[in-house]
Each structure stands twice: as C-alpha cells, then as structure tokens.
Nucleic acid binder design. Structure first.
Lengths: 253, 253
DNA sequence: GGGTGGGCTATAGCATACAGTCGGCGAGAT
DNA sequence: ATCTCGCCGACTGTATGCTATAGCCCACCC
C-alpha cells in the first residue's frame, strides 16, 4: 500500500478487455476530459441482456459465470454484478448455490405483463393529454410520420423502432418518472415474450396512433387514455391469437 | 466473521462435511422442503434496507462499502451485491467511481409514487373482486377485524401492520403477479417517504376498507376498483396535507 | 439387478488483493 | 493573499484465490 508514485511499474495492467469496449461501440480515438469510466458491469449487462433478447441464450439455459467472463474477456466480478441486475429485472432466475438461469417465460406471465402494460400505458396517455405542450405534440406527429414511412417501406425493423419511440414519447409526456420506469421494465419483457410470436400490427396500429395523437393534441385526456387502453389491449389479443396460430402450425407440421 | 456455519474445517480432501450432512439430512422423509443456505447478500440487503427505512442511514449519506462490510462482519463482495439491488429498486443512487448514496426523496417523486400506487392498487381491487373465492373473502374480513381491533387498542404499530396485510391480501387476490411485484416495489418506497410525515388515517380508512370488502365480496369489480382508487387517493391527499402542516410547524418553530 | 453410499468435479459464494481515480490540502509561485 | 499544481489519502472497480456445496458417477452391497 501507499506505493503511489515510486514503485508503480508502468508495464503492469494495461491493454486488456479492450474487446468489450469495441463491443459496446466506442469508436472514439480521442478522449474527452469529461468522459466517465462507465463501469464494466454496465457493458456486461447490456451484452448479456442482448443475448437473451435475441435468443442467443435460450430460456432455461444455465449461465455459467466463468464461461461468460471468459467469453467477454473480463473477470467473474462484473459478470456477477450484471447477473444480479438481470435477476432484479426478471431476465434470469438466481437459484442459490446453483447460479443463474435464463428465465423461462410462461403464458400466464406474458398475459399478466401485457395487461399490466395496458393499464400503465393508458394512464400515461391520459396524463400526456393533460400536460402536452405544443412542441411535444409536434414531435409526436413527427414520430407518427416516421412510422407511416416505415409502413410504406415495409420495413419491420424501422416499424418496431418507430413504434417504441412513439410510445416512449407519450410516456415521457406524462411527466411521471415512476410510471415511466415501470413501463420501461414491463415493456422490455413484453417485447421479449412477444417477439418470437408476432411483430407489430402494422397499418391498423398506426391508424390507432393517429387517432390517439389527435386526442392528445386536443387535450381530451379521457378519450386518450381509453384509446391507448384499447390500442394495447388489441396488441394483447393479437398476441394470444398468434400464439394460438403458432400452436396449430406446430401441431400441423 | 465465522459466526455463520462452522467454517474451520480442515481443507482435507477426505474429511468432507459428512457429519454435517448426516446431521442435517436426518432420517428420511422428515424434512428437506427447500432448505437453502440463503445467500449472505440477501441478509445484507435486508439489513441495509431496514437501516434506510428507519432513517438510521440518512438520505444523501455516502454508503462506504468497507464500513458496511466491517459493521456487518462480512466482506465487501456481498455488500456490493446488496447495493446493486438497492440501486435497482430506487433506494440508493450509484455514482460511478464515487459509490453509493442513499437516495434523496423529492416531493415530486413522492407525489408520482403515490399516484402510481393509486392506479395499481385500484386495478388490483378490480381484479380481486372479479376473482375472489369465498376463503379469500373470509380472510379479508378477518384482516379487517384485526384492523378494527388495533383501532380500538389505539395501537399505531398494529394498525400499520394490519393495513399492509389487508392491502397485500387484496393484491394477492388479483392473481396478477406482475402487478403484485410492481405494487410491492412502489409501496415500500411510498411507506419510506410517507412515514416521517403521516401515519394511517385511522377510523376513516377502515370504514373505507369495510365498504371495499363488501364490494369485493359481492363481485362488484367496477365499484371495488373505484373505491380503492378513492381510498388511496385520500391517503395521497392526507400526505400533502400533513406535509404542508409540517412545513407550517417548521416555520412556526 | 437394483438400490445406496462414497468420492469426484464443476461451480457458486465469499474473501482478499491490486490498480486506477477522485477530491482535498498544502507548498510554492505570482 | 490568492491561485495553482502536485502529492496523498480514501474509496471504488476489477481481478484472483479459496472453500463449501450440489450433482453425478461408479463401485459396492443387498
């Protein structure tokens, strides 16, 4: 200890774990003085969450700390911390003395997530209609046209992104950060469950969006909330429908 | 340390924990429901959360890992993991390279938590009325009388506990685990904010409970939801009222 | 042949060690 | 006297080491 200047060998502990830096997209060559360290655990969290969402890690799969650490080029410590956080947010189950397993979604859970989301999103729309500023409404309309464009282009990826952006903006307009936090949590998991079965509802959904924006713009909070409720409710129905279709398809094949 | 399980075992490759296994295993069929070691991090989490709730740790206070670890007789590792979880649940802020600080509640945040709670609790009451079984309704009435008893005894502690138990049971009756999880999260923080300012509303609140239970028992979901909404809304109002009173008192003193 | 217990291996949980960074404080310069 | 710069202590972030446990395999017993 206290070997600050004198004995610090310059050769020790330098180029390591750079691969992760690249993985989380750090194209900068020059550094800014204000640049925060950005803890490794954050990067690890992002990577693992990503792998879970796009099914690189299957539900039920055992996540071995050593493997992940080796794979990512870091020690077990940041991996553990990332797993903790993933656990808190419902992505993985942590069985004492056994470790982390990718959470296995159940149909019941998906349904509860979807209906809870309906509740929260409807409230956010209601509040948004109450508090909307002209700039925010303008922004909403922009996002709507982005979605329309994606629809014309028939670009699923862009459509999903536009949809998320629009909903996120409504949530932000509600001004309720607690609500926003809960929606963010629920929403990500919804997307995870939902993704293998269905994509956006397309035309129909964006027509509903247009109407919703109209209500928000005119400050009709009651109808805005109601519309959003129905809107997300339909998404829920389409989830069940497509899941059923999927089963039938499975049975047929 | 070493006050947990007997940790002074010689690292011998042969003399493994035979004796302990036999002692714990006992004959057959006796136990082993799910006896798990219960990770240290859990215990640490509970202790720290408790300290935050009852103001042993003041808002804004810097939580130094070493101090906590020494105080609790464990290493920094479990402490760090507990802090992670506390961060995810909004109890502490984690500033990179600076460490953990007890979250400083703002009035805006308290209000948003209270109104979000209103939304969630109302929904849980609505669902509870829809799905209630006779046994659950019976249990509700029991809890109500426990509350009435506490009211007669003028026991604040018992009253708070009874109130929490009743609400928790309604939530459980809703059958929606996602909703329950969100409410649990929001509710604990509400209690934290609320506790220094106000206690339960007493008589009034329990009259409202009685009516609510009536609606749940008769399966009137619409009115049950509405009642719960008003019920928690009044709690919110009383929060603002008492906070204002407190300010005036502060100014006067 | 089937059940049972011992031992082995892999892995989580916890502890310790090390390195980098932040903020403060004081000595020296202006 | 005030400002600046470099040193220092403290603490976090990361890595590594150690130990106990869970689950499995196989040998052994019935």
């Amino acid at each position: 200890m206290t070997d600050r200047r004198g004995t610090t060998s310059p050769a020790g502990a330098n180029g390591r774990r750079r691969s992760l830096g690249a993985a989380r997209g750090e194209p900068r060559a020059a550094r800014q003085p204000l640049e925060r360290p950005a803890p490794l655990r954050e990067a690890v969290y992002d990577v693992i969450a990503e792998m879970i969402i796009n099914r690189e890690l299957q539900p039920g799969e055992h996540l071995v700390e050593n493997e992940l650490a080796a794979h990512l080029g870091v020690s077990r410590q940041p991996v553990r911390e990332a797993l903790q956080r993933l656990h808190n947010e419902g992505w993985v189950d942590l069985r004492p003395a056994l470790g982390a397993f990718v959470h296995v979604p159940t149909e019941e859970e998906a349904d509860q997530l979807l209906s809870t989301r309906t509740l929260l999103e409807a409230e956010s729309a209601r509040l948004a209609a109450k508090l909307a500023t002209p700039e925010q409404i303008e922004r909403l309309k922009e996002l709507q046209s982005v979605g329309e464009q994606a629809l014309s282009d028939d670009s699923q990826v862009a459509l999903v992104a536009a949809n998320a952006a629009l909903h996120a903006h409504v949530v932000e307009m509600s001004g309720n950060k607690v609500l926003a936090q809960l929606i963010a949590m629920v929403d990500r998991r919804v997307r995870w469950y939902y993704s293998p079965i269905a994509r956006t509802r397309g035309r129909e959904a964006w027509d509903e969006h247009a109407l919703l924006i109209e209500m928000i713009a005119t400050g009709n909070s009651r109808r805005a909330g109601e519309l959003m409720r129905r809107h997300t409710e339909r998404t829920r129905e389409s989830y069940h429908q497509r899941r059923k279709d999927g089963e039938e398809q499975d049975a047929a094949s």
